[in-house]
Design a protein around this nucleic acid. Structure first.
Lengths: 342, 342
DNA sequence: ATGGGTTATGTTACCGCTAACAGCCATAGG
DNA sequence: CCTATGGCTGTTAGCGGTAACATAACCCAT
């Protein structure tokens, strides 16, 4: 004796429900809903009508399993509160807009272990491609990405070895370039303020490039100060005050990002310090926020939107023919603003 | 004659590969990898070893289809560049941390149509729950959410009708409360600066509540100014200047968010305007940025972290027993800062 | 030896959809 | 008239896992 068919009114609908409601096979319904193959107009109408009135939402899990196709692109970034990454995401979304591909974001909080877990989780959904911030990953992460058999694009940074493709700028060069501009402007007692996070490799590379250029000019950092956590704007103030108290003859402050730079700028202006006469300031990133500040902070644009676009392009382009292994270096432009002497 | 088994070294691995490599059935491998059921230590060892050396990553698509379980929670927000939403996300992630649930973010850019599309897309992956910002959705969106048979939590706002559960604050009440504080401080010529986005319902409700309270005191807005797009800090400056030029006797400016409020504050301080003596200022949100400003802007905390946490809690809690229909009202606290007379 | 209870592993039948192919009908051409 | 062609629809066999049940091996108490 078979169980009576219990019809649960709240169970989720399947193709079969739509097929029964419209009197055609499941396959035809599937074709209609995906706009595939030939279906007569009258049938299409009936199917769409049925799907609409039932409120049918296809099950992509089943679809993806059957078709071996997943329209997702994994995007792995260290943080959302940095403002840099949302902007990269915007670039990615823009470019993916009408490719049928969909970005899915994972956040690592600058932790390599967390990154490894997020990569594993993402790959287990078999995305069509992955975009990962940075070139530094655990051994296992690199192996997983390399094995995945999908296009991988590492973004933001190109100073290092890419698993597959890469789009970014050279942070080492960016640091160097800024140092050269500062030295050319006549500053000599130069200090650095930045993040202490051990895993912010890009900030580290900028500082390395910066010190490299200083060394070439026979200079060394006059002072340095690090922070972690808290309101970046406030930290910028505090660090600036600390450095100037400890090393009063400093004549330039290089910040590892614009937010703390802005804090420093506000503090200097409040104290009536002559910027850029007595002290020059520079940050990094070119954040929109700066437009509203009393004075334009010197900075370097990190090409965030462009990085997102190009990365997405690589993924979308590879959708069919797999090529792989491109490295695209973008060149940030130095925006001297009003905080470096001319 | 059968085809010779072509072993593609780059094809993605399946349970079968691990099972063959370790000499047990696929089922046992599955059990090991999910820590389910009884497996002897020696077998477990062998299986894990095999999986590790092969670099096997499970296929969650297949797993989800078979088990009818998906460990994803859809989170739908209007924007990532608002700083409010990343913070809500942080609250959600924190709370979901060790529930095995994973947030997946979708962005609507404040467009109801886009929201509808994103909801459809998300539901097609059959998530375990959905967290959606706001109470205003298209007819179709509401229907889809209601039909989905999963816990739905609408966040940020509670002034309206929820599909299922809701966690947020009353923006109408928040606006009213701020107006009352301003009036109590003796200000009378009060103007408003805010976003023009037609779909920022929460800003609208705050303004409605604000005007309501003004009316009760026999007052009306002395002026109003709207913006859209661009650097909020800069827009804050521009709007402030515009209002004060057009209506010089204004003695208070209420901003729809802290960023434009901060711009206004910086502008006033630069112009040497006495704040809060001649002009009072207030914003909304309690963003971290404010800590670094020369003066603390009056604002109201929107309970963003708490909202994220509570929403996640509802989703996670319902994982088993479905209850539904809770509405949690959080109460924002007014932070008078230094820009309202006392 | 028998039976009952563990513990550890294997077998079977799907989950909901789609690729690939098969079939059917009408029309057009020979 | 028959066959070729193309448009439309249906059938079959998985995709890669997991739930549920079946089985085997071993233990101990009877």
């Amino acid at each position: 004796m078979t169980k009576p068919p219990v019809i649960d009114p709240r169970r989720t609908l399947t193709l079969r429900d739509v097929s029964e409601a419209s009197g055609v096979s499941e396959m035809t319904v599937s074709r209609v809903l995906r706009n595939r193959g030939d279906v007569s107009d009258s049938t299409r109408e009936r199917v769409l009508e049925a799907a609409r009135t039932l409120g049918y939402v296809p099950n992509k899990i089943a679809g993806a399993l059957a078709s071996q196709r997943v329209n997702l692109v994994g995007v792995i970034i260290p943080s959302l509160s940095n403002m840099v990454f949302p902007e990269v995401l915007t670039g990615i979304s823009d470019m993916l807009e009408d490719t049928g591909l969909q970005p899915v974001v994972g956040v690592t909080n600058y932790s390599p272990e967390r990154e490894e877990a997020v990569i594993y989780e993402m790959l287990s959904w078999r995305p069509s491609g992955m975009i990962v911030a940075g070139l530094e990953h655990t051994e296992a992460s690199r192996a997983m990405l390399a094995q995945a058999g999908i296009p991988i694009v590492e973004i933001m940074d190109i100073d290092g070895e890419a698993v597959d493709s890469a789009v970014g700028i050279s942070h080492r060069r960016a640091g160097r370039q800024m140092a050269e501009a500062i030295i050319a402007a006549g500053y000599r007692r130069i200090a650095f303020c930045g993040t202490m996070m051990p895993y912010d490799h890009r900030a580290r590379k900028r500082l390395e490039g910066f010190e490299e250029a200083l060394a070439k000019a026979g200079l060394t950092l006059a002072d340095r100060e690090f922070y972690s956590g808290g309101s970046a704007l406030l930290k910028g103030r505090e660090m600036t005050e600390a450095v100037l108290k400890r090393t009063p003859d400093v004549d330039f402050l290089y910040y590892s990002n614009d937010m703390i730079g802005a804090g420093g700028l506000l503090w200097c202006l409040e104290k009536g310090i002559d910027v850029p006469g007595k002290i020059g300031l520079a940050g990094f990133n070119g954040v929109e926020l700066l437009d509203g500040l009393p004075r334009r902070l010197a900075t370097m644009d990190a090409c965030r939107l462009e990085i997102g676009r190009r990365a997405a392009e690589i993924i979308a382009g590879k959708h069919d023919g797999v090529i792989g292994g491109e490295v695209i270096e973008l060149t940030p432009t130095l925006q001297p603003g009003d905080t470096i002497r001319r």
